[in-house]
Structure formats: structure tokens, C-alpha cells
Nucleic acid binder design. Sequence first.
DNA 1: GCATCATGCCTAGAGAAACTAGGTAATAAG
DNA 2: CTTATTACCTAGTTTCTCTAGGCATGATGC
Lengths: 112, 112
Amino acid sequence: MPTTTSQFLNGVPELLVLRLLRDKEMYGYELVEAIRAASNDNLSFAEGVIYPVLHALERDGALSTRRQTVNGRSRVYYSVTPTGKDRFDSLLAHWQRLQGTIAAIVETPRHA
Amino acid sequence: MPTTTSQFLNGVPELLVLRLLRDKEMYGYELVEAIRAASNDNLSFAEGVIYPVLHALERDGALSTRRQTVNGRSRVYYSVTPTGKDRFDSLLAHWQRLQGTIAAIVETPRHA
DNA sequence: GCATCATGCCTAGAGAAACTAGGTAATAAG
DNA sequence: CTTATTACCTAGTTTCTCTAGGCATGATGC
């Protein structure tokens, strides 16, 4: 059974990636730090989590890429496509709906 | 990639099972319906999801069982042990923390 | 000059969990 | 007498996070 840590995280990396990239394009390594910072160190997804998510989203047409070399290191900048925006909207709606449903159940004094 | 349905559900069955059983003991089949009802059909976990969760929680000492035959059909009633209550509390705290973190990020007008 | 660390990319394999798709059996309904 | 409902169960698939690496360049310390 789970260690009670790293629970509930299914789909969260994808949601956050789309959310942060919606504000501005970023490269993978930058995103890893951005998620940590935006969450006040509450959340920390390693590169091994983020890169596959980026690749999958790009494959699905939700992200587009642009390559650029800075200081001799090549970066891959990702930005959100219209498809990606739609995906984020529906993901977010889905999340909020779920969150509301669960809140209603756990906060009920007695079962309905 | 996911169909955007059935996302974010990691750990949710366990959370709801513990929550509903905290109010009153129930048997598996009943729980499946209870989750559907408590969520207004928003959530619907099949028996193939719920039964393994119940077995795992029992194995971990979070649930205790009582067998009873009603109308020739045998039911296995589950109730929450003190261990299970602790588990629910920490699971819930973990969920709420995550929920708050995500809410803060997605609701920020611009990235922090 | 040389080692170590930060930056920046990547993937393979493990592990965990939900989900599908069954199977068994008894009672109730048509 | 056939089908639906109740009630239990599990094996196998899928999907995803996570660990643990590998590769390469530039900066820092000694």
C-alpha cells in the first residue's frame, strides 16, 4: 500500500505544466524549478517526471517547441498551443469538479 | 495519453471508503452504491476497484470485518479501526494540503 | 590543471494504483 | 425459465509517477 506520501498526484504534473506554460514559455529544467517555487516547495517533480509529460503533450499537439542555445547549452522551450489551452481548461474543470465533490463528502457531518 | 476522464483519482477510492465507513459499517456492494450516491453520480468506482482497496486496508489493520448472511447471501461488513481513523486523518490532511497548493497556483492571475 | 557542482537534455525499469472484464452463486422478477 | 439484482472475488492491462541512472557543457574551487 502507499506510503501516504505521493498520493493523489495522478494528473497533477500535467495540470501544472500546462498552467505555468500558459503564462510564459519555459524549458524543462526551468519548469522543474518553477513548479517547486510556485508551490512553495510543497510540490517537487523531478526531471524524470516532467520530461516525459512534456514529450507526451507535444506529441498530442498540446505544446509546441522551439530550440535555442544559451551559453553553449541547448534549451528546448515549450509553449501552449490552442489545443493545449483547451486541454488545460478541461483538465482544470475536471479537477475543480472532483475537488468540490470530495469536499462535499468529507465535510458532511454525517453521511447523506 | 489519458482521455482526460478518470484523472486525478489516485488515492480517492481509499479516502472515500474510509470516510464513509467512519460513519457506519457497510459491506462492499453497499459501499459501491454509497459512493455513487454521496457524490451525486459524479464518482463511480466499480467493484473491481473497491474490493481490492477493502482487502488492502484490512490487511493493513485499518479495517476490521464481520461476516453475516442475509437472505441467503453472505455479506462482509467493514468498519474502521483506530488505525484506520488515523490513516483517514492523515490522508485527508494530505489531500487538503495538495488541494490548497494547486488552487493557489491555478488561481494566480500571473505566475508568482 | 583537475575535480566537483550546476545546468540542461534524456530514457529504461520499477512500482503503485485504477480499470476492464471477467467468474461464481443465490434470490427475485418477468 | 430466463434474466436481472445482489454479493462476493481476482487476473491482467493500462497508465502514470518515481527512481536511478546516462550524456554533455560551463562555472567554481583548490
